[in-house]
Structure formats: structure tokens, C-alpha cells
């Protein structure tokens, strides 16, 4: 099974493979990440944003995949994601980057968000969107983090969904 991640930095192919990923996409360069407020999207773009209506509307476009930039336990948004039958990528960087009470609160919000995903049968997958190497995780760590935060189903499947959703063939 192949694992993928999206980060905000460029990584060498050998380094990505050492971490256990088949590929780490660079957001903005290898993957078009656009604000969910735009009216028109490039083919296979990924829309990001916290505004529920905008993200849900973006997901209705045929070739657009959605990223949630932080934990957002909104039943309405998750229900719309479940209806679109697409995968929602959730940025788990807050759980890694923050410390103390802010970190505990972020973890609580992630768990709540993923609890709603499980109940609504919406598909979700974790990504790091790391700004620097310090905030990258290996595939093994991201799988463990996914299980800890409550991503549904098999955690390996959650990670491998990215490449398939974006159109990379096995």
C-alpha cells in the first residue's frame, strides 16, 4: 500500500521514501491548493478554507477535493462532505505544533470532528501541511496519529486515499 502526504515544502524523493511515503506533494506547486472562495477551479484542484458553505460548494465541483485547515467539529459541514462522497483531508499540524492547553484543546476538537465523520460516514484522511522539516511526520507516525485522533476505519487506508483521490494510479 502506498502512502502520501501534502506539505508546504519541497522534499527529496529519497527523503520521502525514507519516511515511508511514496510521495510527499508540495502544496501550491505539485498540487493546486486554492481558496474555497474562488468561483472557478483548475482541474484537480484542492480547495481549502474554514468557511463551511464555501468549502461545501467547492466540493460539488467534479474534480475538486477539500482540505480542512484545522479541526472543525461542524455536523453541517461533515454531512455535506458525506453527501459529496469525496475524501476530506484534515490538517493535523495543530496537534503537533501547539503545546500545553492549546494542544489539548486541538486534540479534543480533532476527536470531535472525526467522531462526526464516523457517524455521518464521511471519508477523512490526515495530512500534515508542514511548513518546515521540523513539523513533518513519518508514515508510521502519521498512522499512529490518525489512530490516536480517531480517523475511521483502517489507518493505513486513511493515508493511502490521497494518491488515489488525486488520480495517481497504482
Amino acid at each position: 500500500m502506498r502512502f502520501y502526504d501534502i506539505a508546504n515544502l519541497r522534499t527529496e524523493s529519497s527523503f520521502s521514501k525514507r519516511l515511508g511515503f511514496y510521495r510527499i506533494y508540495q502544496a501550491g506547486i505539485e498540487i493546486d491548493v486554492q481558496d474555497a472562495g474562488k468561483q472557478q477551479y483548475k482541474k484537480k484542484a484542492i480547495a481549502t478554507g474554514s468557511a463551511e458553505n464555501l468549502l461545501a460548494r467547492a466540493l460539488k465541483e467534479r474534480n475538486v477535493i477539500g482540505i480542512l485547515p484545522k479541526a472543525q467539529p461542524s455536523k453541517r459541514l461533515i454531512a455535506m462532505v458525506a453527501d459529496s462522497n469525496k475524501v476530506l483531508f484534515i490538517n493535523v499540524n495543530d496537534a503537533i505544533r501547539q503545546e500545553g492547553k492549546a494542544q489539548l484543546k486541538s486534540i479534543y476538537l480533532y476527536r470531535k470532528t472525526l467522531q462526526y465523520c464516523r457517524k455521518s460516514k464521511a471519508k477523512a484522511s490526515p495530512i500534515t501541511l508542514a511548513e518546515s522539516e521540523e513539523y513533518l511526520l513519518s508514515a508510521r507516525q502519521l498512522m499512529t496519529m490518525a489512530k490516536f485522533l480517531g480517523f475511521s476505519g483502517d489507518e493505513k487506508e486513511a493515508l493511502s486515499i490521497l494518491g488515489v483521490a488525486y488520480g495517481e494510479k497504482d
Partner: peptide, 16 residues
């Protein structure tokens, strides 16, 4: 995964 500093040095630790 949560540790980002050792002896004042900022770093990331990856489990291979």
C-alpha cells in the same frame, strides 16, 4: 511526534 526540541535545539524526530 510531539517532541520538537532537545537541549534547546529545534528539530523534528521521525520514526522510521
Amino acid at each position: 511526534s510531539f517532541i520538537k526540541e532537545i537541549s534547546g535545539k529545534r528539530l523534528g524526530i521521525y520514526t522510521i
